[in-house]
Design a protein around this nucleic acid. Sequence first.
DNA 1: TTATTATTTAAGCAATTTATTAAATATAAA
DNA 2: TTTATATTTAATAAATTGCTTAAATAATAA
Lengths: 123, 123
Amino acid sequence: MKLEITCTRAEANHTQLLNCQTTIQNLDNGFQQMTKLLSIAGNDVRLKILFLLNMENELCPCDIADILEMSMPAISQHLRKIKDAGFIASRREGQTLYYSLVKSETQILNTIFTSIESLKKSA
Amino acid sequence: MKLEITCTRAEANHTQLLNCQTTIQNLDNGFQQMTKLLSIAGNDVRLKILFLLNMENELCPCDIADILEMSMPAISQHLRKIKDAGFIASRREGQTLYYSLVKSETQILNTIFTSIESLKKSA
DNA sequence: TTATTATTTAAGCAATTTATTAAATATAAA
DNA sequence: TTTATATTTAATAAATTGCTTAAATAATAA
């Protein structure tokens, strides 16, 4: 495992830096998966969609569009992105599609939702 | 609080939708702050920087550039973005700037870091 | 079949992101 | 003062994001 040192300050501990590099590389899978979740949730609209699905169990695109006062295509495209990432699933009932959280993939979101609620207090 | 209903399906419970809208609006401050954190952390490079700062307590831009094998300006611009958001701080020691996490603002990240580490197992 | 409703998809576009390269600061050393 | 090192800033440019509008599906109702 190579480590190109560009910084010449004495304090730079090459062993420390190499160790950091190894750790980051070993956790590559974790970083990839977590970045996927956070980049999905790191958008105002999508975070609200995820929160709402957690709160209401399932909602159709139309409900979400009404609640967030946004257009259907805008919501639909966010839903598609979240679904492609595997964090929500849909079931059809007639013309209506119901979206819901894939619980096994979204455990970390519970911490985030709780935190959002607690941030209210300090407002 | 108005609610424009665009969906005509019978199951759509207007009270439920209005309640959702109220909840989302009441938590506006929480959503804003959480979106800020998640949009910062929802980038591969920045998530790794935050993880490294948590692991090593403080690092200079040069260390981070070496570890992640990226250019100094690229790292510097990520650091600036994280710092502008208030999640890291810096102290100067001669020519070197040391960056570290602002603990009070990054508690939620601990859950995320733990999760990254545990995702390794299932790889 | 035709019309209506729920939803998605596609095309286009403005705004944002993230890297690169080159130039500017800031501190320390010769 | 001149030079070197650590870092930031600025100017681009390519890629991505997230909306809009219009068209395409899919299921239901008339």
